[in-house]
Design a protein around this nucleic acid. Structure first.
Lengths: 210, 210
DNA sequence: CTCCAATGTTAACATTGTTAACATGATATT
DNA sequence: AATATCATGTTAACAATGTTAACATTGGAG
């Protein structure tokens, strides 16, 4: 459906690369990676099933590109949500986390995909969007740490712990088996209280140092 | 290699169901799920490629059974590691978490697999090993909470948060992109300090209530 | 001992990923 | 403007896999 603007055009598609990534995103978003095929993607774009191979080495490479676009979307969404909050505020960190949660609740199929362990050591493509997302988070935590008097050498540690928390919560809430165990738990409230307990703990331990 | 005890036996294999699960475990453990095929599994068991369909509806059903066996292994390993610790102790919880981390560092391919979100609502098979793993953890946290004077209605909440923490840490340490950000971080030490900060926070907030 | 249900085999088939050989046309160069 | 070139698309093949149907074997219940 749709995408007819290119379907009956000329011999050359003109924007196949981007169209494939976008189509693939939508298809995976709706039905998961397992059922995603190059054939379907090509058909939806109105080209032959061999055409995608002019733009992507193989199926995995296309999926990899879709994952990159996912990190872009995630980064943009977090940035958007976070910008109005004061630099160094606790709310800025928590809002980032909440947005992270909401993003993957909207696109659950991509959670597994974007953080699967077996990411090839693919040096050919860029992938810079991935560390960027983490860096945004580290910056926010870093600013808060500075304000709260947390020593320099604990910043990355603190950021990692906060990220692990948010990530673990998402994973929990997306897993069908484990979800049953906490069906009545408000996920967003869970993150808030968790963050507060944790950040309180950091602050307390740092005040002892002074 | 191996499995010849059944290979040249009779027309009927005799233990194909379990053999397939075990072979599949090993193959996935070594090379990941994507490259796992029914054909290979059948060949390794010394049967035709159609034989597995007498025991499993399709490829996914076999993988699902392997995942169940994984939860069994995980549960056994945690139980083993934890049993010598005192009921209700903080160390018992942390040791459980450390074992969880070690298990998935030994079997990284199964982390994605065992916690993938799109687990079908398959009511046909058992799957009771999955909640069992979580229940063990909840019990340990529950015992600690009782000792620490944490009110009843905070127990599940606390257990979920601890689980999310451990799970997030594993996910972080297995992901190739994110691993780089914390390459010099000692994962096990990270869990210890995180747990201490968090559990201290819980204890402190509960003492205020008294 | 006989029969049947469980389990295994062989032989097909559609789908998919992938490549090779060929076609087209947008664009730079003369 | 004419043309050469290279990126991009097409068609036609292929092997591998998942899956099913039709048939074979056998262990065990009656």
């Amino acid at each position: 459906m749709a995408k007819q603007q290119f379907a009956d055009r000329t011999y050359h598609h003109g924007a196949l690369h981007d169209t494939l990534i976008q189509s693939a995103w939508e298809m995976i978003d709706l039905h998961g990676v397992e059922s995603f095929t190059i054939v379907d993607a090509a058909q939806q774009a109105g080209v032959s099933k061999a055409a995608p191979y002019r733009h992507f080495r193989d199926r995995d490479a296309l999926i990899d590109a879709v994952v990159d676009s996912g990190f872009e979307k995630l980064g943009a969404m977090v940035q958007e949500a976070v910008q109005s909050y004061e630099t160094g505020s606790r709310e800025k960190i928590i809002t980032g986390g909440l947005t992270y949660i909401r993003f993957f609740h909207q696109h659950p199929a991509f959670f597994d995909l974007m953080f699967r362990g077996a990411s090839d050591e693919d040096t050919s493509t860029d992938h810079s969007t991935r560390p960027q997302c983490l860096q945004m988070h580290i910056d926010a935590v870093s600013a808060w740490c500075y304000r709260a008097g947390v020593p320099e050498d604990m910043v990355v540690d603190t950021a990692i712990k906060m990220w692990a928390t948010v990530h673990g919560i998402v994973s929990l809430s997306l897993n069908s088996t484990l979800r049953r165990a906490c069906v009545e738990t408000d996920i967003e409230e869970l993150l808030r209280s968790f963050s507060d307990t944790f950040l309180d703990g950091i602050e307390a331990s740092c005040q002892l140092l002074e």
